[in-house]
Each structure stands twice: as structure tokens, then as C-alpha cells.
């Protein structure tokens, strides 16, 4: 029983991380209707930025998280400028939602993600980076029968703070208002005078910042920072987005938690090398049986 509880805690913190990554996907899909394939690399870049910071200045964790948030946001804006903006020359609705547009940006972000990953690999090498032990988040804490590590608590805390912050930004600031307006109806938002390009840049900043923080949190939790680390979480976050109904943030968060917990619990029954299959199976099942997401959010043809 204790073991189950323990796995549940691990699953929850895993799911929280997927949720942070999935929110970036969902926000970007909401405003642009495209998949950002380089989102996983933002996660990697966040982890490496945090690693560099720890090795060179060893600041307290809060500072690192804030800096990583900023680095992620800046990288996201840069990514938008290079991989998405050049394809957004026309502003009629049909073009913004066309299939060609989506596939072109999908491939351009994919190409940039290869460049980013291989670039990191050239500089740092493809092996795991060694992290100073005292920075790792794995000192055990006993709560009743369950032993968790402080990393679990920090991941919970940070994720809750960021989710609350996101909710605040979306609901109570003018940037959030324009993000919601553009994702509701890009053309309408433009007609009422919202600067859509700016809003899209802001969306990338917010989403990528959260993805980057997720990267450094996982890096510290598992002590595994390497150039290809962003690929699998990226796919799993994408699965969470599709399951949650594409543009619904609460849906994506709940599905990310479901995926995280199922993965952790699956390791009770099968060897942990197979746990990646859980997310892929979820993806295929969702796409085939619930193409509109399990909460029925999507409004278009999938």
C-alpha cells in the first residue's frame, strides 16, 4: 500500500511537470492553431540555463527559477520570430487556419528544434551533465508511512504558483485579455484593434517560460540533464493537450496529471522501460476514439 502511495506521489509530480509543458503547447495552439514542435527544446534549454547558473554562480533556487523563466520566455519570443512569424504574412482567417500554414510552421519549428538540440550537443556533448550534488532535489522527507523527497514538494509548490500566476495573467491583465481574445477569434481581435503579432509573442513568452521552468525542475529532480531530454516530455505534453481538448488549459492540466499518474503506477506492473508506451497508447486511443479530447473541447475537424 505504501508503495502505491509513493508511486502516486511520484506520478503527481511527474504529471505536474507535464502540465507545465502542456500549458505552453495549449496556449500556442489556442492563439495560432499550430503545433510548436520546438517546445521540447525550450524545456531542454531551461534545464541547461539552470545548470549553467548553478555551476557558475550557485545562487539560491528561487533566483535560478526566475532566471530560467526569463530565459525561456526570451527563447520563446525568438523562436516565434524565426520559425512562425515569417509564415504569417496574410491575415485573413482562411490563411491563418490553413493546413499549409500549419504544416509549414510544424516543419520550421521541427527544423529549429533539431538545430537547437544538436547545437547543445556540440557544446556540451550528448552524455548526462553532472550536477553538483548539493543542488539536487532529492533529500528524503518522511510523511507518515510515505517517504517523499523535497523535490516533490518543490515541484508541487512551483507548479501551483505558476498555475495561479497563469490564471492571474490570463484573467486580470490586459495581455491575458488579448491572449484570450486572439485565441477566441484572431480576426475579430484584430478588428477591434488588438496587436495580434505582439499578443502571439506574449503567448510564446508565457508558454515557453513555463516549459523552461519545468525543464530545470525535472533536471534537478532526476539529476538528468542532457540534450535530448526534451523530446519525450514534449510528446507527452502534446498528448495531454490532445486529450484535454486542444485549447482547454484545465483539460490539459488534468490529462497531464492522468498521464503522469498512470505512468508511475504502470511501473508497479511492468518494468519501467515500458512506461513511455503508456503515453503513446493514450495518444493513439485518444486520437482514434476521442478525437475531440476527452472533455470534448475542439471545435474543428481533426
Amino acid at each position: 500500500m505504501d508503495y502505491y502511495l509513493q508511486q502516486l506521489v511520484i506520478g503527481l509530480s511527474l504529471g505536474m511537470v507535464y502540465a507545465l509543458v502542456a500549458i505552453g503547447f495549449t496556449l500556442i495552439f489556442g492563439v495560432l492553431n499550430v503545433v510548436n514542435f520546438a517546445h521540447g527544446e525550450i524545456y531542454t534549454i531551461g534545464a541547461f540555463a539552470g545548470l549553467l547558473l548553478f555551476v557558475s554562480f550557485a545562487p539560491p533556487l528561487v533566483v535560478v527559477l526566475l532566471v530560467v523563466l526569463a530565459v525561456g520566455a526570451l527563447t520563446g519570443v525568438g523562436l516565434e520570430r524565426f520559425a512562425f512569424k515569417p509564415f504569417r504574412r496574410f491575415n485573413d482567417e482562411a490563411t491563418l487556419k490553413s493546413r499549409a500554414m500549419r504544416e509549414a510552421t510544424l516543419m520550421s519549428s521541427l527544423a529549429l528544434s533539431i538545430v537547437a538540440r544538436e547545437g547543445i550537443e556540440l557544446v556540451f556533448g550528448s552524455q548526462f551533465q553532472s550536477l553538483p550534488l548539493q543542488h539536487m532535489l532529492n533529500s528524503p522527507i518522511k510523511i507518515g508511512p510515505v517517504t517523499i523527497v523535497d523535490g516533490d514538494l518543490i515541484i508541487f509548490g512551483t507548479s501551483f504558483l505558476m498555475l495561479a500566476g497563469l490564471q492571474f495573467v490570463l484573467k486580470h491583465t490586459s495581455v491575458g485579455l488579448s491572449i484570450r481574445a486572439v485565441s477566441n477569434n484572431a480576426l475579430g481581435a484584430r478588428y477591434v484593434g488588438i496587436d495580434t503579432d505582439r499578443t502571439i509573442a506574449w503567448t510564446f513568452a508565457v508558454g515557453s517560460g513555463m516549459g523552461a521552468v519545468a525543464g530545470i525542475l525535472v533536471g534537478l529532480y532526476y539529476g538528468a540533464i542532457f540534450p535530448a531530454m526534451g523530446f519525450t516530455p514534449g510528446i507527452k505534453a502534446f498528448v495531454a493537450m490532445v486529450m484535454g481538448g486542444l485549447s482547454s488549459i484545465p483539460g490539459a492540466v488534468i490529462c497531464a496529471l492522468i498521464i503522469g499518474i498512470s505512468e508511475a503506477l504502470s511501473s508497479i506492473f511492468v518494468s519501467s522501460v515500458w512506461q513511455d508506451l503508456v503515453a503513446y497508447a493514450f495518444l493513439i486511443i485518444t486520437l482514434i476514439f476521442f478525437p475531440r479530447g476527452i472533455f470534448g473541447g475542439a471545435r474543428e475537424r481533426v
Binding site: E103, V242, Y280, P291
Partner: peptide, 13 residues
């Protein structure tokens, strides 16, 4: 499935 959903399904498989 159409367009990117098909792409992602093939990626998953």
C-alpha cells in the same frame, strides 16, 4: 485523422 493529427499519430506509433 487529418493533417497534424495524422502526423502526430504516426509519430506516436
Amino acid at each position: 485523422l487529418v493533417s497534424i493529427y495524422f502526423a502526430v499519430a504516426t509519430l506516436g506509433i
